[in-house]
Amino acid sequence: MRLFGDDAITSSIGNTLLYVLIGVALSTVLGIAFAVALQRPFRGRSAVVAILVLPWALPGVVEGIIWVSIWDGNTGLLNSVLTSAHLIDHYQVFLGHNQLLTVFLTEIVQVWQITPLSTLLILAGLQNIPAEIYESASIDGAGPWGSFTRLTLPLVRPGITVAMVQAVIATLNVFDQPYVLNGAAATGSSVTMQTYFVTFQNLDFGEGYALSLLITIATLVISFIVLKLVYRPVEF
């Protein structure tokens, strides 16, 4: 098969698996942490929820400009802050040299964008847990960590499942972030980027569909694994 003989496509498959791994793990952990922090009412909670979803509403093309100006090696915000704090003595190049670091910093941008969705999905599930369950647990002597692992986590499994599957879909299709931050370079290019190149630049729609099929199959397989591992029906 021609697809697998192509260096650019082989390296993009490796990168994409890294994007999925980092992105799903980070967005799920952050989503759960954020949702739990917002689970109980407090003054200003609705404002925090409103702020939380802002990254999602920022259009991709603007998100690109902003994060380029944060990571950039010539004039970036991160370099400026680290230099002012005397943590580095001259500006560093963060993207493009090391594959792992490039993929990680690029995926941070996507995690920033998709974590609001994970949080909302998990938060909706948390709101459904009856308070009495926690009360009886605390009578039984469960501490906060105990009630989190023994009650909260098991009870929001359906919400976590949806959040994880959404993260799988988003990360398998990652495009804007690597394209804007690292160009078509092998250190960060994704399968969806290759699909775009083949389809809309080479104008080879047949090969483009073949690559899309790869993503479709990967989505179904990984989602199925998540479903089997994480999902358990819950009824109160």
């Binding site: 380029v68 950039d72 090696g73 010539n74 004039t75 500006y91 190049v93 993207l95 040299h97 690292n182």
Partner: peptide, 22 residues
């Protein structure tokens, strides 16, 4: 050429380096 230019695109270099006197 600045080491960070490995990730500078054409328009970015013109706008953030040349037009800024860098």
């Amino acid at each position: 050429v600045a080491p960070a230019n490995i990730n500078v695109s054409d328009s970015q270099g013109m706008q953030t380096l040349m037009a800024k006197g860098a």
